[in-house]
């Protein structure tokens, strides 16, 4: 019963959500779907809390075992501070929580992502060596898209570069992207069906 009931829940919920699309004109179907979807969002929110509890558990263990203690304490202090500010004084625009968000979270996140600009440059050097037709196409497309979107490309090299960059984005790039999207959609639909009918049950774990 430890697996049968979850499989039944998955089947019923998945089937309802698919059939709802075809029968949403029947009275009350919309309302029931809304309640079920809201419930799904609540449970999914608890998975976030589960993840955070896991982070705290791992870091508390590290503190207990004297591993990287100052850093782990920093993590916990940052976490507790945000929680306290958010739950005590709310999340309005002029609240201390938003001040912490703007002062700590925004620059830390933006700088973390901007670090990739430096590493992407060295990765590009290795990836963009024109050793085959495929690598050459990758190189040419990337260089044209980049040059077409900076002032140096339009003003110093060729005024039509932005047009070429846009054309690459709109046609050859779109063709490749569309093939990937259609392939991924077919994969997602078939995986979803396998999950609903119980053929794919790895999410239930071992045992």
């Amino acid at each position: 019963m430890k697996k049968e009931i979850p499989l039944l829940i998955t089947f019923l919920l998945g089937t309802w959500m698919i059939l709802e699309f075809f029968f949403h004109n029947i009275p009350h179907v919309d309302q029931i779907t809304e309640i079920l979807t809201n419930g799904g969002m609540v449970i999914a929110a608890f998975t976030y809390i589960l993840g955070v509890m896991n982070i705290l558990q791992v870091n508390a263990n590290r503190i207990k075992h004297h591993q990287d203690r100052p850093y782990k304490w920093t993590l916990l202090v940052g976490f507790v501070l945000m929680i306290l500010l958010g739950f005590t004084w709310g999340i309005d625009v002029d609240s201390p929580f938003q001040w912490m968000y703007n002062t700590f979270y925004v620059p830390l996140q933006a700088t973390m992502f901007s670090l990739l600009a430096f590493y992407i440059a060295s990765a590009a050097f290795r990836a963009f060596r024109a050793r085959s037709v495929e690598a050459t196409l990758l190189l040419v497309a990337a260089v044209l898209v980049m040059l077409g979107r900076v002032p140096i490309g339009e003003e110093w090299i060729w005024s039509r570069l932005p047009d070429i960059s846009n054309w690459i984005m709109d046609y050859p790039n779109m063709a490749g992207k569309r093939a990937i999207l259609i392939g991924a959609a077919l994969g997602a639909i078939s995986t979803g069906l396998r999950v609903i009918i119980g053929m794919e049950r790895s999410y239930l774990g071992g045992e």
């Binding site: 976030y48 940052g78 945000m82 929680i83 958010g86 999340i91 968000y101 979270y105 830390l108």
Partner: peptide, 15 residues
């Protein structure tokens, strides 16, 4: 570590 802590706390409050 500060980033991880702050973003986890931020996420919990927003969620």
């Amino acid at each position: 570590h500060l980033f991880v802590g702050v973003s986890a706390g931020y996420g919990v409050v927003i969620v």
